[in-house]
Amino acid sequence: MYKIVVLIKQVPDTQNVGPDAMNADGTVNRQALPAIFNPEDLKALEMALQVKEQNPGTEITVLTMGPDRAAAIIRDSLSRGADKGVIISDMRFAGSDTLATSYALACAIKKIGHYDMVFGGRQAIDGDTAQVGPQVAEKLNLPQITYAEKLVSLKGDTITLTRRLDNGVETVEATLPVLVTVTASADDCRYPHAHRLLKYAKAAPEIWNADAIDPEMERLGLKGSPTKVKKIDNVVLAHKDAQQVEPTEAALNELVAGLMKDHIIG
């Protein structure tokens, strides 16, 4: 049996941005965006659940950094088969970039203590940076296996996984403990169990503040974040003088003939 930590994140659903997503001053109106379970983190949870299925007695702890309302994705994880959930939440984490985030998560994982595997999604849809996984791995001095697609086998302390790369698939073998980031083409997460849904509907996860994870305080939040936002620009479109073409046969014909004459199409 194994001990697994799965890193999860509640994210604004940036794929379904409504017209009220932006405030008039160009800041993001977070209230208007539905909060969802980051899709690749769900796939990471599934990989952990597959380990648990094959190795009864395995214990899965899901860990997230976020506001208290992130309890929703902890409860969701519990209903799908995770055993424990922890939120690290503190105003002192505010303004964290990926470096400060990974530091806080690494401190929390150390507090959780024993772990054979750390799983997480490759990236979160609100930033698409794919940085936190490898950064947590470095901080815990773990080897990292990124873009994992399939768990091939797990025997004793040897894990074998396939990785989905730009130009193919690689099968790698590593000795535990490892950190694994799971990519979009991995298996979808199983559905919640009905009885677990009921059981955990009101479950309150453990919430740890900054003091609880015993960090060097100057490495947290804004202070611990080397990247600064110099400015945010609203997307202003420089209007080209577009030529409007009516969707009529004559007009389209003229367009196509013109492009052919200019050798843009041959």
């Binding site: 479109l237 209007h239 080209k240 577009a242 073409v245 969707p247 389209l252 367009l255 052919m260």
Partner: peptide, 27 residues
């Protein structure tokens, strides 16, 4: 449309087959 050189306001499902036909005719 703001960065386009040509804008065709219409139903793609109708316009695309029309473009194919225009191209074949002009070729």
């Amino acid at each position: 449309n703001a960065i386009a050189d040509y804008t065709i306001i219409g139903d793609v499902c109708k316009v695309v087959p029309q473009l194919i036909a225009c191209y074949n005719k002009n070729k």
